[in-house]
Amino acid sequence: MLSNSATRYGMISIVLHWLVAVTILSLFALGYWMVDLTYYSSWYRTAPYWHKSIGILLFLAVGIRLLWRLATPTPAALSSHTLLEKRVSRITHVALYFLTILIMLSGYLISTADGRPIAVFTWFNVPALGELFPQQTDIAGAFHQYLAYALIGLTVLHALGALKHHFIDKDTTLKRMLGQSAH
């Protein structure tokens, strides 16, 4: 099934979820590593180029994911979940989206402050809006860095929650996102 139902995730939601998850973790690792590259490293130019290209593509993927959320029902939380679990997971999910979007926007602001567009591989350029506020590159850079730490922290919480449901509660929370039926 491609589409979601009231009780299970369809293939499109599942693929988008894991695609975004793997991309975010990869971009974090790449970003964390590339900022300390030395000038003569062969990756000095390539790593930021990939980071930015993939970041823009992630923005598109997250956009599609949000549109898909509107277009298809979101399966309800399992009835075995406590009210607290439902609330915490709801807040976490919203915050994951929110942080991801803010990180991508701040990344855009770092690179475009001088009017240069962002190249997405050799495929297309995302035009710059130029400097929208003073010290844009530095301020956006600080936001980009610390929001990324926050996002990864929240992702760990999110993953721990899923593992707790799987191994301790032995419910189908994680299995649902792996494409298995909720029953």
């Binding site: 930021p48 770092i110 402050a113 001088d114 240069r116 590159t137």
Partner: peptide, 11 residues
Amino acid sequence: SNHAERDKHLR
């Protein structure tokens, strides 16, 4: 230096 990212690095 006419390049926002480089200037960030220089700072």
